[in-house]
């Protein structure tokens, strides 16, 4: 089904894509290169695409000024748990809303969707009080529990439900005749086929958790519990001014996993789409 482009059209398409890439690539490039520049060079005008002098000590300082390795680990394991938890909950809930007939299913789904409409700024104070009562402030629990049972999961459930609705009912009926229980139909038929949807759920859930900013600064107070977005703000000198080059080095390290996750998940995404072969 792939239409082959003529060589000329190809050149034009790729050319246009290169131009469109500039607004995305330039800031990234500036971030990465500036992390190697001495502070004086960062604000040079016009901006230098390649540093005149290379300063590799910034990356060492990232780890000495803050417990950055610990913070990296915090972000990583929280994002991993949130991603796996959300995939589990959203696939099951999405399947139930799409396929299992139970009383008030649609009404309940609407109520669940309301979770998307309430901004986290509104719920953060009551949540803080709740977690305070539970003794979970300055622990990672809020950062894990809030997304898994909150808006990101609702959105994921919506995505999964839409996917399962589009899955041909005949497939499940065939599985029923073949002798599968409802749960087996879910695990053996529906779930494997939902890989493309699950991959996109994984991408945006991971990103959401990785970039989470408001919740960590509300719930966490000690540096060794911080997550990366919060840690980035802590690279300041004695007067509270930002240490730009070190901050940019930390930012580069922070952006790295996002890039990796996206590359991996994107492969699954495409593969999953090709794999379903649901269409005639």
């Amino acid at each position: 089904m792939k239409a082959e482009l003529s060589p000329r059209a190809k050149v034009m398409v790729y050319g246009a894509m290169c131009v469109l890439l500039i607004p995305f690539v330039f800031p990234t490039w500036w971030m990465v290169t500036s992390s190697f520049k001495p502070v004086s060079e960062i604000f040079a005008f016009p901006p230098r695409l390649i540093p005149d002098s290379w300063d590799f000590t910034t990356y060492g300082q990232v780890f000495t000024l803050q417990p950055f390795a610990k913070q990296y680990w915090n972000s990583a394991y929280i994002a991993a748990i949130v991603t796996v938890g959300t995939m589990g909950i959203s696939s099951m809930a999405g399947y139930a809303f799409a396929r299992i007939r139970f009383p008030f299913a649609n009404a309940i789904f609407m109520v669940v969707l309301l979770g998307l409409l309430i901004p986290s700024e509104v719920t953060i104070v009551p949540l803080f009080q709740l977690f305070l009562k539970l003794g979970m402030v300055n622990t990672h629990w809020p950062l894990i529990l809030v997304p898994i049972f909150g808006a990101p999961s609702v959105f994921a459930t919506f995505v999964m439900r839409q996917f399962f609705i589009s899955l041909p009912a005949e497939l499940e009926e065939a599985a029923r005749v073949d002798g599968l229980s409802r749960f087996k139909i879910f695990t053996k038929i529906a779930l494997p086929l939902s890989r493309p949807a699950l991959a996109s759920v994984a991408i945006f859930t991971f990103l959401h958790s990785w970039n989470l900013y408001l919740e960590p600064i509300v719930f966490l107070s000690s540096a060794d519990k911080f997550t990366l977005p919060q840690a980035l703000t802590q690279f300041t000198d004695a007067y509270g001014g930002p240490m730009w080059n070190i901050q940019l080095a930390a930012a580069t390290l922070t952006a790295l996993p996002v890039l990796i996750v996206f590359i991996i998940a994107q492969k699954h995404f495409v593969e999953g789409l090709a794999h379903t072969g649901l269409k005639g």
Partner: peptide, 19 residues
């Protein structure tokens, strides 16, 4: 249950498991 009726069914769109 369908699975205990000892029947097999061929569906209009075949319903083969794509994966």
């Amino acid at each position: 249950d369908p699975k205990d009726r000892d029947i097999a069914m061929v569906f209009q769109n075949y319903a083969l498991y794509p994966h």
